[in-house]
Design a binder for these strands. Structure first.
Length: 429
DNA sequence: GCGGATCAC
DNA sequence: AATGGTGATCCGC
């Protein structure tokens, strides 16, 4: 039964969306992953979440049944008007670059330990991997996979512990180079950034040979070059692991490019959105355009406006100024913890860590949120907004401990069997 | 304002 | 034996 297969397999199955995963024995890999996962609490929770998504799809399909030709006609007219407006504002004059260091952490580790270059290798731990090199990817080993499963796929896999300080150091060298091309570049993580090349090109009239630095030869850095951020991001994925892809700044080139683009490649359309769209017969961005009237009736305004822009190959043609942070948090996973005293002292510790981080940036916030994940991987958050901003460990803990107590009382006489606890603070001044 | 969900990295 | 941490946003109360 197809429905059953889908439900049982999709979440856990190998994610071969990434580069370097072509032509491997997918069935064999999926079988190993499934065998290592089945029966675990984690797996059970994934199945549950999968079912929730399926229910969402059922609900959406029912809604779809209620839609009349009349509705669609009206929606189509509204979509058409919106398209005219959006086309008027289409901007093809900017040159936006997305740079993404390939297998960044793995590349840094291989630079520092050349013997690793010829071996399958990943960065992380037996519990979780951050990234893997291309040798390892041949075996199906990838980011966000627990190391113990990766070891089953590839017994010779070398797992190197993460060394964030090192990656930060390399990252800051790379960022200096970025700044030469665009002082207002937007870092997305240690290894990824958007740059506006327009002015650089006007001055220099030429492309740099490479954004590679002398200190960082270990990894290529694919670039995507396009008239806006949405397209640049997709383009940088195109010619991995090497080289770059430039999308010409014409409407025709953009529309043709977008036509065959799978929706999942677009930033902002994740696993769930993809599944919802697939249920409506939408897998590529051209389908997205064809079914826009329907989408406008089934999705929220923000969602379908985003879909519409994507289907037209539109995105931000300028790189927004870096926003101030809106929240700060600390969370930690640990082995099962049920005792009240233990949970309280951990909670205090987290509050102290958070207070330290807040102090570094001189921030105070009014909303304190406690996050809990039980041993079944179920996540809960409990928040309280004060009338005044707080910042010290004592102040935060005073709120967090009450939220925790309420949850414990709620569960009693059963204990709270936790595997994660976290504190967050927001509503800064 | 709150809590769950989704998404990116 | 073992499935992360941080930040943002959206939706439906």
């Amino acid at each position: 039964n197809f429905q059953y297969m889908e439900e049982k397999n999709i979440k856990m199955a190998l994610n071969d969306n990434k580069a370097g995963m072509e032509g491997l024995d997918r069935d064999k890999i999926n079988k190993i992953i499934m065998e290592s996962s089945k029966g675990s609490k984690f797996y059970e929770n994934e199945v549950k979440r999968e079912q929730q998504v399926n229910q969402r799809i059922d609900k959406m399909m029912l809604q779809k049944e209620q839609i009349t030709e009349q509705h669609l006609k009206k929606a189509q007219a509204q979509v058409a008007r919106m398209v005219v407006e959006l086309e008027k504002r289409r901007d093809l004059t900017r040159v936006i670059v997305h740079v993404d260091m390939d297998a960044f952490y793995a590349a840094v580790e291989m630079r520092d330990c050349p013997e690793l270059k010829d071996k399958p290798m990943a960065v992380g731990s037996m519990s979780m991997l951050s990234t893997s090199n291309y040798h390892a990817r041949k075996y199906g080993v990838r980011a966000a996979m627990p190391g113990f499963i990766a070891k089953k796929l590839c017994p010779n896999l070398v797992i190197v512990p993460t060394n964030f300080d090192k990656y930060r150091a390399v990252s800051s060298e790379i960022r200096e180079i970025f700044a030469d091309y665009d002082p207002n570049f937007m870092p997305m993580s240690l290894d990824e950034a958007y740059l506006d090349f327009t002015e650089h090109l006007e001055k220099r009239q030429s492309w740099p040979d490479s954004l590679r630095t002398h200190h960082y030869r270990a990894s290529s850095n694919p670039k995507g070059i396009a008239p806006n951020m949405m397209l640049a991001k997709v383009c940088s994925d195109k010619n991995k692991p090497n080289g770059q892809y430039r999308l010409p700044s014409t409407r025709e080139a953009v529309m043709e490019f977008v036509c065959n683009l799978p929706v999942r490649k677009v930033s902002g359309i994740g696993k769930v959105s993809e599944k919802l769209l697939n249920a409506l017969g939408i897998s590529s961005c051209s389908h997205l355009g064809q079914k826009m009237a329907l989408l406008s009736l089934l999705f929220s305004e923000t969602a379908w406006h985003h879909f519409l822009q994507v289907s037209l190959g539109l995105g931000s043609a300028f790189i927004p100024r870096h926003e101030e942070r809106k929240s700060m948090s600390t969370e930690r996973t640990f082995k099962e913890m049920s005792a009240a005293e233990e949970q309280l002292s951990l909670c205090r510790e987290l509050c102290e860590d958070l207070a330290n981080d807040l102090k570094k940036e001189g921030l105070k916030g009014k909303t304190v949120t406690l996050k809990l994940k039980n041993v079944n991987f179920e996540v809960k958050t409990r928040a309280l907004t004060l009338s005044y901003p707080v910042a010290t460990a004592d102040e935060i803990f005073a709120v967090a401990k009450d939220l925790l107590k309420t949850e414990r009382d709620n569960e009693s006489p059963q204990p709270l069997r936790l595997r994660l606890m976290g504190n967050q603070i927001k509503q800064f001044n």
